[in-house]
Design a protein around this nucleic acid. Structure first.
Length: 453
DNA sequence: TCTGCTTTCACATTTGAAATGA
DNA sequence: ATCATTTCAAATGTGAAAGCAG
């Protein structure tokens, strides 16, 4: 956390609208914990898969975090984006993931803006913050502001916290970025690992209809013999899964590595080492000759050097929590938080966190963030969706002393972070007429730092 | 053309919010 | 104004079929 003291706003003095305060000191005290860590771990152990569809699909488990250490009266913006774990495309082969080649070109990267943003620190800290409405899509022409991913590629969410009165101020602000290793996942259009399917059905209330054995039998009996055969095969597979408890190698090794360092809070370097291992679950495959031009992992960590590996839950990583200067967060037990005990267990703690914000005058200023420079990638269709914004982040590579994700003028030369998106019109009523500048929002698909030649 | 992998679509079921009525 | 009930859109995994590449 020491490095965080180096945080400083960039690009000259912040606007007066920005809350004054000991930014650098307080930002260093920000703590972020993942809710339902046990549930996430359950998925991660098997190799989390997230369905992506053209209309957009919610994540399950969805991202839900607790924040602490914010200045109660200062305003913050919360963002989530998805970054590739590596430069590979994968395939599911005989119950495990294998590298299937080089990753496809990065789709236009979008950043999901929490609908409550900006809100005071007290607001973010009073209850858990849910990103329930975040949707993933494989439609590169998506105009709803969903996060665009490639199927059969691996990603992990990043949480960004920016102290800023409004999105206009963000360009002078400093990002703090948090990642949770256990939230990494493979984007798929159909589930590959039947164990993951079972886990989703067991814990997602919307899939309750698939839990009841009798109902399932009824459904199955109506299918063709070939279908039944397939079902039997799948059942067999899932039995084997549960029997052998043999998740793909990457998961097991990942968590072995994670568990294996009990006792010491790892220093920064060690953390990065762990990350690398966790994000290189198929190291064996790579060693066997799979190579790509895109340097995976390490590079983007160099670039986003404020990215913090958030400690694992106390249940299996107590020493890290300790390092954050507070007792283990009272993370709900798996049973109480996701055991399917009803609706309350899902959203009761933050039922309204992800609801539509009041798009008052100040929030409409978000559009003033303006378009960043155009990137070299093929352009998606025009992003007329008013909730999608482009923003940019200074490229920190080669500036070892610089800590933080500094936003820069949208017309500057650096790389954009991505497009901001808030829940789209399918979820919420349309906003008031969008700022004209937004029509340029399609202009700058985000280029991964490790993608640039 | 064949095969296998991936994606898309319609479907049944459940959830949850809005609308309606007492 | 409050509460209970109804209605309906959204969310979910399933399985068949289509699309696509080798």
């Amino acid at each position: 956390m020491q490095s965080i003291r180096d945080l400083k706003p960039n690009f000259g003095p912040p606007p007066q609208s920005m809350a004054a305060g000991p930014d650098t000191y307080m930002q260093g005290n920000i703590r972020l914990t993942l809710e339902d860590p046990d549930l996430w771990k359950s998925f991660h152990d098997l190799g989390t898969e997230m369905i992506i569809t053209k209309p957009g699909r919610r994540m399950f488990p969805h991202c839900k975090i607790n924040l602490a250490g914010l200045i109660p009266c200062a305003k913050y913006i919360l963002l989530v984006d998805m970054v590739p774990v590596d430069g590979f495309r994968y395939k599911w082969n005989k119950e495990k993931w294998e590298v299937a080649g080089k990753a496809e070109p990065q789709p236009p990267c979008r950043t999901y803006l929490h609908p409550d943003s900006p809100a005071p620190g007290s607001h973010w800290m009073k209850q858990s913050v849910s990103f329930l409405k975040l949707k993933l899509t494989n439609n590169t022409l998506d105009q709803h502001g969903h996060i665009i991913l490639h199927s059969m590629h691996r990603y992990h969410p990043r949480f960004h916290i920016v102290q800023a009165d409004d999105l206009f101020s963000v360009r002078w602000s400093v990002f703090q970025t948090f990642t949770f290793p256990e939230t990494s996942f493979t984007a798929v259009t159909a589930y590959q690992n039947t164990s993951i399917t079972k886990l989703k059905i067991d814990h997602n209330p919307f899939a309750k209809g698939f839990r009841d054995e009798s109902t399932n039998k009824k459904r199955r009996s109506s299918k063709s013999p070939a279908c039944q055969e397939k079902r039997a095969k799948m059942s067999d597979m899932s039995n084997r899964d549960s029997k052998e408890d043999s998740p793909p190698d990457f998961c097991r090794s990942a968590y072995e590595a994670y568990d294996g360092e009990e006792g010491d809070m790892p220093k920064r370097k060690e953390v990065e080492g762990i990350k690398q291992e966790r994000y290189s679950p198929w190291a064996a495959d790579r060693e066997h000759g799979v190579r790509t031009e895109s340097p995976p992992g390490a590079d983007h960590r160099d670039v986003y050097n404020t990215e913090q590996l958030v400690p694992a839950p106390a249940s299996y990583q107590p020493q890290r929590v300790h390092d954050f200067g507070k007792p283990p967060s009272p993370s709900p037990s798996v049973g109480s938080s996701h055991s399917g005990s009803g609706r309350s267990s899902f959203e009761s703690r933050a039922p309204d966190v992800a609801t539509v914000p009041d798009h008052d005058a100040s929030k409409l200023r978000t559009h003033e963030v303006g378009p960043p420079p155009c990137g070299p990638q093929p352009l998606p269709a025009p992003q007329d969706y008013p909730g999608v914004l482009n923003m940019s982040v200074a490229h920190q590579a080669g500036k070892p002393g610089m800590i933080g994700h500094h936003l820069y003028s949208p017309y500057g030369p650096e790389q954009p972070l991505g497009q901001w998106s808030t829940p789209g019109p399918t979820q919420y009523p349309p906003r008031s007429p969008p700022d004209r500048r937004l029509h340029n929002a399609h202009c700058a698909p985000w280029i991964s730092p490790w993608q640039r030649g």
